[in-house]
Structure formats: structure tokens, C-alpha cells
Design a protein around this nucleic acid. Structure first.
Lengths: 206, 206, 206, 206
DNA sequence: CATGAATGAGTGTTCATTCAT
DNA sequence: AATGAATGAACACTCATTCAT
């Protein structure tokens, strides 16, 4: 993957899918005609580039996730230390990702039993090398934590992953589920601090 | 809600939906004819009791969730102290709920944008009084934690809820996402202990 | 097969297909909606009884051929002797079958490479017992010819079949290909006689 | 028609169509893209030379039939006598034509109701002069038969044509319909002799 | 009450044809 | 002249819902 140079029609399709998902439409409800109309191209054109609807949507999602994660990775590379990194991730979620509920939707799409979900899981297993996923970001974090000595290496790795993933997921969900946007706005900074502290404590038994 | 006395056809429909969901079929993929065939009743009969497909499925799910949560509540009533309670919940997940991925599916259904999800959210807002939901169980836990002094009352309540909910969700997801069942079996006890400890630490600033 | 009691919708579909074919529409051009509209039923209804379009059409054709051939068989049973029988068949063709080009279309459908053709061939191989086909009529004729001593039994059976089948086919084709109906009308009686005589000669070397 | 000098792209298209038909694909199933891909030219190019798909295919078929029939005519010119000629035709069918089922397919294409069939019939009526067709070969045969005295001139010409055409068609069909190639191989010589004799008898009342 | 046969609106996909390059 | 990317009309098939029995 990586940025590469997508054919213009493909990139129009990807953008269309991204927008539709951002508009809170159920993924399974999206019609091929919705996508192509929004992309400003003919319906048949989509089938010049993709085998079927599932391919179109799953490719768009993978591309989008890959972009977000690559961007995040780059940011992380410029930072030093686990606390800074986790803070940066939460910060970035505030800025763009969660605005669109992307992370949550990604979780859905992976844990679902829908056809698209099945394809996504296959593709992720198949060519993970090229695609940058949330999982890679968590691994990066863990590496930084172990290097910096904030993660007790005697803890099972699955526990560590769970602790980090659950905090990120929940922070993502916090946005979409919370009802009073103003109240939430005020609490947010405190929340992030609490989350970072709680994470540090939970990964360090001592 | 509560047990009440459901008409026999309704209860057959609820059971059918429960079974179909347990069979790992995508909810969107479930057909009315699947449900009625499995329930052993005529297709038209379903429409004597429900307005449409979404009503059938969302009612069945709500009923199911209500049952599980009521059962859990009863168990919690017989216990004393936050740690015992959270332990009991994790234990129960081991025994039945997670086996079927129910909790996770419930999360999906609430955070989705599918028609069923929308109806579920509406109904939960509308008549929450009668229905017992996971949220109520978390509130019960928090109450117990505050009474027992293990929760620092100066922390924002949304943070507390998040910490608890995220641990439960992730423990649920751990099952469905993990691949080697044997390995996971061995770790499980350690994991539960780590989770309880981590939770206690994170809710107590001191 | 045999007459049986077809569900009324099925028989409506069969009649519709028969009419459409009789109207000289290319079989591959027939749309499901043409059939159901003509049958006066909903499009979905066709799919209650048949798996797909090919099934609908091939079943209708088989049914139709079976009816014609059964009728013919009954007529032949009341006759005695090869020449009478072959005369009767040509006569019947004059009366109804060829009017509709059915026999010719049957030949097409069997020697084609179209999807419907493939299904027809399969079905004929699969359950020939129940279905009465032109081939059975030819066999009946041959039997009568051998019994009556007009067929030289030393001739290869494939040759005998070919001689009979080719005469019947060509007589059928004569109708549809000929252009001046009046002229043909006048010749017809002479033609039939010539055909019968020629057949008798060709099957008897002596 | 005749050999002329076809533009190279046109001749590539004709060859491609010929090959595809020889591969036992249903004519209706042939896509323009199949043809142009096989011809090694761009899809748009086909439309530089032909108005539409039907034109491409029907022109290719006519060209092909014309070639075969012209070749046959040339062979017949070098022979003398009806029996020799009919024998030569059957021989040639053994060698090449029938190998590809061409004659049979031609019959189909003329008696069909497909769009291609309609165009073919129109074209044949329209400019028959230039195109050499099976019908011309039969006329040639009849001429030779009458000249040689083996055809009773009091018989209606339509009968004579039918007798000859039906024998040729059936011999062609014999190949494609027969199942055991070896058995058929052995019978073939006898068959041809029987056919010639039967033809001679049937055209000579005396 | 209960049924399931009948329905037809709605959708994914194909492919002949066009046209800017 | 040659191309092939783009198009959208057309069609098979599904399934939620109805209603006569």
C-alpha cells in the first residue's frame, strides 16, 4: 500500500466511501450507486477496478486505515517515551480520527460477521506486511514502553495489548456515545490525563 | 419487561433469533423466513405480533439482554464488595455470555448505524425503566465501589464508567479475537486477577 | 411427467413460455418479466417454483415436448404398420406441431451450446424414463418397421435412425423455410407421399 | 465477396470469431471484448469497421461460409457425375467442416430467431450474388444429377432439394450427436455409401 | 388467530457502445 | 486510424410484507 498513485477513479471511489461512512450511514446500507454517484463516475466504472461491492468498500476502508496509521506512525517516530506517545495518540483522536468515528467503525468492521468484515480479515491476514494497522501502532507503543522501562516485562503480552487497546477504544467510544458535547469538552483534558496515568499504573505491577 | 408471560409464538420467535445470532450469522443477513422457520411458525404470524423485521429482532435482543442482566443483578445482590462483584461478572462471562459473543454483539448493535441499532437505541432511551441493561450493572458496581470506599469519589463519573466498561468489553473481545483456545485457557485466571487489580488501582488516585 | 396436476401458476408459466416461443421470439431473448407478465403473475412467484430462468424455460419446453410426443404415441398405438405411422406423423405435423415450429426449435435447443440447451440435455439424460421424446417416437416407428418387415435388419441402426429423423426434420424445416405458402400447400400432399416412399426404399436394400 | 483484400484488422476479427465459434461457445455468449482481445486489436477498432456486434459476427460467419463453399465449388468443378460429387462432399465434411461443426452451426444460425440470424437471412437475401452458400452447392449437385440422368426431372424441385439437404445435414449432425467416436469411425464408410445409394434411389422414381 | 402463496420494489452486475486522446 | 477507459441501460434474482383462506 502506502500512498502510491491511485488511478483517479479509484481515489474518487475511496473518498466517496469515506464520506459516506463518515455520514453515519450503515455500511451495509451503502449501495454501489450511492458510491459511484458521490464519486461522480459511472456505475460500470467501479467494476473496471473492483470485482464487486465488497471489494470496493473493503479496499477503501483498508486504504483509509492505512493512511491514518501511517500518519500516526510518523508522528510517533518524532516522539520519545511511552507517555508522550500515548498522549499524542489521544490528541490525534481528538483532532481527526474520532471526529469521524473511524476507529470505532474499524473495530466494528473487524469483529462483525458481515461479508465485508470477512473480506477485511482475510486481506489483513493475507498481506499485513504492506498495510499499517492499529495493531502496529500498539506494538510500537509497547516497544517504547518496554524500552523506557514503564512496562513490567513479566506481564503477559496479551494483557498489555488489551490494556492499551481497551483504553483507546473506550476513549474513541466516549465521543460517539456521550450525549452532551459541551460537558464532554470540559472533561476531556482531565480524562486524557487520567487515562495515561491509569495505563501506566496498570502496566507496572511493582 | 421482566419474565412476564410472553405469548408462545413470541417466545418461539425470540428463541429463534437468539439461536441465529449465536450461530455467528451476520444480523443483517438474517431473513424473516429464517426466523419463522426456526421458530416453527408461519411467516404471517410474526407480523401479528410485530410491525416489521426490525421490531422482531430488536425486541428479541432486548429481551435477551434483559434476561442476562437481570440474572446478573440477582447474583450481584447476593455478594458483598466491589472486587467480589467484578470477579463474579468476569466469571459469568466465562460461563455463558461470552461463549456466545452476546455481549460483544450487543456492543455492536448499540454502536452500529444499522436500522436495528437505531431502533434499539430509541427503545432503550424510551423505556429504560423496565429493561435491565449492562449500564445498570455498571452503575450497581460503582455504587458498591463507592460504598466500599474503593472508588475515589472525586473522579469524574464518566471516567469511572469508562474504566469499568472498557475492561469488560475487552475481556469479552479477548475471547472472540484470540486464536489459540488452549493458550488462552491457561492465561485466563491470571488475566482476570490482573484486570481486577488494574481496575482497583485506576479508580483510586491516592 | 405425464399430465399430472401442475400447480396453476406453473401451468400459467408453461403456457406463457409456449406462447412466447410460438411468437418467434429468440429463446435467449426471453426475459423473466416477459414470461411472468404474460402468465399474469408476479415475478417473484416464478421463483417460488423454479430456481432460475433456465429452469423455467427448460421445464416448460420439456413439458411441451412431452405432451406432444405422448399424444403422438397414443395415435401411433391405434395404427398398424410403418407406412401408416409415418404418414400419421407427417399429417400431425401439418396440423399442429410444425405450425409452431416446435420440432425445429427442439432440435435447435438440443444441438445448441446455450445454457438452456445444456440443461435440457442434462435433464433428458437424467430422467429420460418419465419423459416422452421424439427419439421415443422414432424408436416406435423402427419397431413397427422391423415387425412389418419393411426395414432391412442388416442395416446399422444409426443409419435407420438418421434416415427417419432427417426426413422428419426436413419436412418440418420445409414449412418454416419455404416462402410461398400457397405453392407449398399444393405440393404438400405429393411431398408426403414421396417422402414415405423414399423412406421405404432407403431402408430396404434388397 | 470472394477472397478480396480484407483490411488486416477485419481479417483478424473474422479469424477470432471463427475460432471462438469453433470452441463450442454459444454464439449468444460471445462478447465483443472476447473477439477483439483474441484478434489482438482494440475494442474501439472493431467499431471502425462494423456498426455493431451483430454485424461483426454475421459478417465473419458469412465470410467463413463463403470460403468453405467456394472451396467446395472448386473441387466439384474438377469432378464429373452426381455420385462422385456427393461422395466428395461427404468426404470433405469428414476432413474439415464437420470437425468444427460449422455446417450445423450454420443451419442453426439460419433457422434461429436470434438477432444475428435475422441479419444473416437479410444479407443472404440481399446480396446473394456475391456470396457462395450451401444452397448453391446443392443447386450444382442437382444440375449435375439432371445432366447425368440420375434425377427424375418430374419430381418437384423442392423435394429434390430437401432430399439432398436432409442427407447432408443429418450426416453433419451424426458427428456431433454420436457419442462413441470409435464406433462411429468404423461405421462411417458404410454410412456414406448407404447415404449415396439411398439418395440415388429416392430421386429416381422409376 | 394462523398461515404461506403471492408480490414487486429494489440492487448488484454485465457489456455493447462511445469518444477523448 | 487506433485505442481502451468510461458509461448506463438492462436484467436476474431476493425478500419483507400482505391478505385471502
Amino acid at each position: 500500500m502506502a500512498g502510491k498513485h491511485l488511478p483517479s477513479k479509484v481515489s474518487a471511489l475511496y473518498t466517496a466511501v469515506e464520506e459516506l461512512i463518515a455520514e453515519d450511514i450503515d455500511i451495509k446500507e451503502i449501495k454501489v450507486s450511492d458510491i459511484t454517484r458521490r464519486a461522480g463516475i459511472g456505475k460500470g466504472t467501479a467494476y473496471e477496478y473492483f470485482k464487486n461491492k465488497e471489494e470496493i468498500i473493503s479496499s477503501a476502508i483498508l486504504y483509509h486505515i492505512d493512511s491514518i496509521c501511517r500518519g500516526m506512525m510518523k508522528e510517533l517516530d518524532s516522539l520519545d517515551g511511552f507517555p508522550q506517545m500515548i498522549g499524542c495518540i489521544l490528541e490525534t483522536m481528538d483532532e481527526k480520527m474520532v471526529k469521524r468515528g473511524c476507529l470505532l467503525k474499524y473495530i466494528h468492521l473487524l469483529t462483525d460477521n458481515s461479508p465485508i468484515s470477512k473480506i477485511l480479515r482475510q486481506r489483513i491476514k493475507g498481506r499485513k506486511g504492506n498495510i499499517c494497522l492499529p495493531h502496529d501502532i500498539i506494538q510500537r507503543l509497547i516497544q517504547a514502553g518496554e524500552d523506557g522501562g514503564v512496562i513490567d516485562q513479566s506481564l503477559p503480552s496479551s494483557y498489555i495489548e488489551m490494556e492499551i487497546a481497551s483504553r483507546l477504544m473506550t476513549y474513541a467510544a466516549y465521543y460517539t456515545l456521550q450525549v452532551n458535547p459541551e460537558e464532554q469538552e470540559a472533561e476531556r483534558e482531565q480524562l486524557k490525563e487520567l487515562i495515561v496515568n491509569s495505563l501506566l499504573k496498570s502496566m507496572n505491577i511493582r
